[in-house]
Structure formats: structure tokens, C-alpha cells
Amino acid sequence: MSDLHTELKKSIIEQLNLEDMEVSEIENDEHLFGDGLGLDSIDALELIVLLEKDYGIKLTDPNQGKEIFNSINTMADFIEKNRVR
């Protein structure tokens, strides 16, 4: 597991107040929304803020989020390709 994957899990737990979760409990390919981690629409908006704040990536089309936020893997891939910091 890369540092970015771990870093993402940590910030998701912290930013989205998943108080009862540990980094080790989130699988890299687990769905973040729906059946998986069970995040909701406000979490998705907060993830958009996280991308901008931590990696300087501004999502302009909210529909883009669906694919990017599919799992930790897809998020990490997207960040690697697009990060400006």
C-alpha cells in the first residue's frame, strides 16, 4: 500500500468523521459509497473540498466525482495524475 493510499484513508476518516473506523478497515478497492463504506452526498462534496485543499485539484463537473470517488484506488490514481501539490 502506497503512502498516498494510507494518507487518503486517514484524511477520509478524519474529514468525514468516521470516528469508529481504522485505516486498516478500509480496503483499497472497497466502494466508498453505497454498500461499501456508506458515504453520502454531503461526504462527496466534502471529498471535493479535500481534493482542492490537499492536492490543489479543482473538480468543476460534480458528475466527475462518481468515478473518482469509487474507491481509494480510483481516488489515488486520479490524484497521482492531477495533483499540483
Partner: peptide, 10 residues
């Protein structure tokens, strides 16, 4: 001031 938080705004 920086990144308005949707999860707080709600």
C-alpha cells in the same frame, strides 16, 4: 476564509 465546508454548512 479558505474552503467553505459543505458538511458544516448543512
Amino acid at each position: 476564509a479558505e474552503f467553505p465546508s459543505p458538511s458544516l454548512f448543512v
